[in-house]
Simulated scan of single mutants.
Amino acid sequence: MRIDTIDERLALFRHMAGHMGLHALDPSAIPPGELRAGAERCLGCRAGAACRDWLTREAENAPPPEFCRNAESFRRWVEAEIDAAAPR
Results as ranks from 00 to 15, higher is better:
residue 9 R to C: 06
residue 8 E to H: 10
residue 15 H to I: 07
residue 46 R to I: 05
residue 25 L to S: 08
residue 36 R to E: 06
residue 20 M to D: 06
residue 19 H to L: 02
residue 26 D to Y: 09
residue 41 R to L: 04
residue 3 I to M: 11
residue 33 G to N: 04
residue 46 R to S: 09
residue 12 L to D: 04
residue 3 I to V: 10
residue 46 R to V: 06
residue 3 I to C: 07
residue 35 L to D: 09
residue 9 R to Y: 04
residue 29 A to Q: 14
residue 31 P to M: 03
residue 6 I to D: 07
residue 46 R to M: 07
residue 37 A to R: 15
residue 26 D to R: 13
residue 24 A to I: 07
residue 33 G to A: 05
residue 10 L to R: 14
residue 38 G to H: 03
residue 5 T to I: 03
residue 19 H to C: 00
residue 28 S to M: 01
residue 33 G to C: 03
residue 15 H to Q: 15
residue 24 A to Y: 13
residue 35 L to S: 10
residue 12 L to V: 04
residue 14 R to A: 15
residue 22 L to A: 09
residue 31 P to H: 14
residue 26 D to C: 07
residue 17 A to Q: 14
residue 14 R to N: 13
residue 38 G to A: 06
residue 37 A to Q: 15
residue 20 M to K: 11
residue 12 L to M: 07
residue 44 G to S: 04
residue 19 H to R: 05
residue 3 I to Q: 12
residue 9 R to G: 00
residue 27 P to F: 11
residue 13 F to C: 12
residue 13 F to L: 11
residue 28 S to A: 04
residue 36 R to G: 01
residue 25 L to F: 09
residue 10 L to S: 09
residue 10 L to V: 11
residue 31 P to K: 14
residue 17 A to R: 15
residue 33 G to M: 02
residue 40 E to W: 06
residue 26 D to F: 07
residue 41 R to Y: 02
residue 46 R to C: 04
residue 21 G to W: 05
residue 35 L to W: 14
residue 31 P to E: 15
residue 23 H to T: 10
residue 39 A to S: 10
residue 39 A to N: 08
residue 28 S to P: 00
residue 45 C to E: 05
residue 21 G to L: 03
residue 10 L to E: 11
